[in-house]
Amino acid sequence: MKYQVQEKCLTIYLPREVDHHNAEEMKREADAVIDRNHIKYVIFDFEKTDFMDSSGIGVIMGRYKTICLIGGEIWAVHANARIRKILTLSGAAKIMQIYDEEDKV
């Protein structure tokens, strides 16, 4: 998993395809990093991602459960139309901030 930690913010650079196969490892690594660095904000960067199924939603929801306990937030950036559809359909869009390409943070 590619990631970057800046202060209390963790950016996860998601792979091209997010499915059950690579979700397991991502969960494990993300949890370790969150724990170790007292992370309060998690940014999921979908720049490289063109496929995601419900296992990816599981990764997001699971991290949200941890992060919201300490009053943090989760964000999604660079999500294409397909990814946004998946996020909306699953209800994940309601618990996270989704930034469009244009309005860079």
Binding site: K27, D53, G58, I86, S90
Partner: peptide
């Protein structure tokens, strides 16, 4: 406990 979202069939149907 495995962070399954429970959305599998919902996605198939959608």
């Amino acid at each position: 406990e495995q962070d399954r979202s429970g959305m599998g069939f919902a996605f198939m149907e959608a």
